[in-house]
Every structure is written in C-alpha cells, then in structure tokens.
C-alpha cells in the first residue's frame, strides 16, 4: 500500500494527502515532504546561506506543520505549499532576529574570536606555577628579619595602611615605611642570591 502511494504520489493532490494525514495516514506526510522538500529547503538556504542553519529551520518548519495538522488547526483555505513556505519564512525571520540579539562569530579566515576573548581562569599549568611562586615568596619572607617581616605581612597580606601598622607595632609611620623598604630590598637580594624565578 505504501509503495502504491509513492508510485501514485504525483496523482494525489496536496489537499488529499493533508486530509489523509490528519485522518491518521502517516505515509502521506512522507509523500508531502518528499514532494516539497527541495523547494522549501532551497528557499530557506537562499536566505540563510548556511546548510546547517537551513537544515534546522527546515526541521522546525515541519515540526510546526506536523503539530498544526495533528492539532486540527489547519484550514483548507490556502494551499499547502504556500502555507509551509510562510512558516519557513517566519522562522527565517526569527533566526535573523535571534542572531542580531546574539551575533554569531565563525572562526573562518583571518579573524579568530578567541584572539579577542580570553578565559580569565587559570589553566592547570598556570595554577601550578602560581602555587609555586607563592610558596617561594613565603620562603623568602621567612628569611627576613622579624621587624621587617611583621610590617610586610601587615601591609601585603592583611592590607593594612601604614598608619594602622604604626598603631599596631608602636613605631612611627616613617619607621614602618623604612622597614617595608628594607624588607623589599632584602627580598630582592635573597631572590638574586638564590636565582629564584618568580614569574607566572
């Protein structure tokens, strides 16, 4: 029976096939799709110029067709093909509207979107290096004299102002500034002496 429909499909009008499909004749849909697929797909492709997008819109068009027919909302006023074309046309418009809201960049040619966008999170290698650098710095700080270490820890790790450091340690602001300066000078010396590389 299926073969008969395929063989005679040119004889059966769209309206009859639609009617048969609504009444539960599933193969009628295949005849309709095969009959019109080329025109509908070409129409979509001529607007979007992308095979994958055209494929998606073609699929969405027929999903809408199937839903409308099965829900019994299709009226026979218009013809089947112009109706499907109108659905496809509306979906093409939706596609372009969506793309203007969220433009799509393809990585073809000399422009690569990933040269503009970067991932702010560190990858595994960089996070290992970061840990290494931080642990080296902690070792260097441990080498400093106690008074310089105290000021540096308060300033860098606890984010205290020199006024707060002065209040906490009971020395003048100038002394705190001086200790910070010597702490940095001494750290540079230790780094140079041991050839420590602190780069990320």
């Amino acid at each position: 029976m299926f073969k008969v429909i395929i063989m005679r499909n040119e004889l059966i009008t769209d309206a009859t096939l639609v009617c048969n499909y609504i009444n539960g004749d599933e193969p009628a849909l295949e005849v309709l799709i095969i009959r019109h697929k080329q025109r509908i797909y070409s129409f979509i492709y001529s607007k979007v110029y992308d095979k994958d997008v055209a494929e998606d819109i073609f699929q969405d068009t027929f999903i809408k067709v199937i839903k409308t027919l099965k829900r019994g909302k299709y009226n026979e006023e218009g013809k089947f093909l112009p109706w499907v074309m109108r659905i496809a046309h509306n979906l093409v418009i939706d596609h372009f509207r969506k793309n203007t809201r969220m433009p799509k960049f393809s990585n073809t040619g000399d422009f690569n979107i990933f040269s503009v966008l970067s991932d702010s999170t560190l990858d595994a290698e960089k996070s290992i290096i970061k840990e290494q650098v931080e642990s080296d710095i902690r070792k260097v700080i441990e080498e400093l004299p106690e008074d310089q270490k105290e000021v540096l820890m308060m300033r860098m790790y606890r984010d205290m102002s020199f006024k707060e450091i002065s209040d906490n340690t009971g020395v003048s602001i100038n002394t705190a500034l001086g200790r910070m300066r010597y702490a940095l000078i001494n750290m540079r010396k230790i780094i140079d002496k041991h050839n420590i590389i602190l780069t990320n």
Partner: peptide
C-alpha cells in the same frame, strides 16, 4: 545539492509517528 539530509526527513517522520494530540475538555495536550 539543495536538499535536506535524509536523517532530517527520517527524524520528522519518526517525530510525526511519536506525536499524538490528546483532546481533553476543549484542551489539547501533546
């Protein structure tokens, strides 16, 4: 070749077979 893929058509036919609309008190459920 301006034709959709066979898989797309097969998907639509399968979708059509799987979809049924249930009428219930003037409401339609898919």
């Amino acid at each position: 070749d301006l034709n959709p893929k066979d898989e797309t058509i097969q998907f639509l036919l399968d979708y059509s077979k799987a979809l049924s609309v249930i009428n219930c008190n003037k409401m339609k459920f898919e």
